[in-house]
């Protein structure tokens, strides 16, 4: 048998309630492979509330604490304080929240957790809309995307506003570690988690989590769509370690954004001009990221 490229230990069980091909499920699987069993996970309202299965079953082999939608950052701080007081200093506390629960309703508690330097990990799995409630736009929905609240018809063209740059918001808090991860690159994902685990203080992951029903593609394409997100520079992979940027995957020449967009029904209405606009935005963001990396 070939050597496994990511840890064999599974702390996420089968029998969970995720849709077929769910990216958010792979995010949890890889995260726990990197963190190991001395981990406590706290989860607000999000797809994972359901994926983790109804009472009396649970999909994780580590403790999971449900918390309020907007309060994941505070829940991490509470668990950390209790763990330290109760002699559980070796335990990793991780908050696992969706993009709506993080970049929208949970932003305040996240900011608080980062500012007060809670020793814990916050992971935002980004499926780019309120998927658990049925694909309503969030602050993390990209420009141009169809959602149920940004319809595409003769009067409208999907979401009009650009995606909120959560990593820039995180970076403004100067955490010791922040990184983007993508389910199409599990080795990179787990390596970053293992690296973060060894660091103390607030740490953040922005994880891309493609969603077959919400992004309107067929379930077998999850990895392909995710891979294209990075290889078109739509979702670059990088770390920010103590303020220093480092891009962890660079292609000589990125693929055209069109290749990513055309895999998903949520972008199928976009015309050439709209695609060109998105390409220009992606190019500008990439250029900015290279410049940030150059500051090191």
């Amino acid at each position: 048998m070939a050597r496994l490229t990511i840890p064999a230990q599974e702390l996420m069980r089968s029998g969970h309630s995720a849709c077929p091909g769910c990216g958010a499920t792979l995010v949890m699987r890889y995260l726990l492979k990197g963190l190991g069993e001395r981990t406590i996970v706290t989860v607000p309202a999000c797809c994972w509330t359901v994926i983790a299965t109804p009472f009396p079953t649970t999909a994780l082999d580590v403790p999971m604490l449900d918390c309020a939608f907007e309060a994941t950052g505070a829940s991490i701080s509470g668990l950390r304080a209790a763990a330290d007081q109760l002699g559980l200093k070796d335990v990793t506390i991780v908050g696992f929240a969706g993009d709506g629960g993080t970049a929208d309703i949970g932003l305040q508690a996240l900011s608080g957790m980062l500012e007060r330097r809670t020793d814990g990990i916050y992971l935002m799995y980004d499926n780019e809309a309120y998927m658990n409630t049925g694909v309503q736009r969030s602050g993390a929905t990209p420009e141009g995307a169809w959602t149920t609240t940004t319809p595409v018809d003769e009067f409208s063209r999907g979401k009009l506003e650009p995606k909120k740059d959560i990593m820039a918001i995180i970076a403004a808090h100067n955490p010791p570690y922040a990184a983007t991860v993508n389910v199409a690159f599990p080795e990179d994902f787990v390596k970053k988690v293992e690296k973060a685990k060894a660091i103390h203080g607030p740490r953040f992951f922005h994880a891309l989590a493609p969603c077959p029903p919400g992004w309107r593609y067929s379930s077998e394409k999850t990895i392909e769509v995710a891979r294209l997100a990075t290889d078109t520079n739509v979702f670059p992979l990088y770390e920010i370690v103590d303020g220093v940027y480092h891009i962890t995957r660079k292609l000589g020449v990125a693929k055209p954004v069109r290749e990513y967009l055309q895999t998903q029904g949520r972008f199928s209405h976009l015309d050439d001009a709209e695609v060109a606009k998105i390409q220009a935005q992606v190019d500008a963001r990439w250029k900015r990221l290279l410049a940030l990396e150059g500051l090191a």
Binding site: R13, G15, H16, S17, T53, P56, T58, A59
Partner: peptide
């Protein structure tokens, strides 16, 4: 409300 039964008692083959 504490759930302690591992989820693999649920079979999802019918999906």
């Amino acid at each position: 409300p504490i759930a302690t039964t591992p989820s693999d008692v649920n079979h999802t083959a019918s999906w």
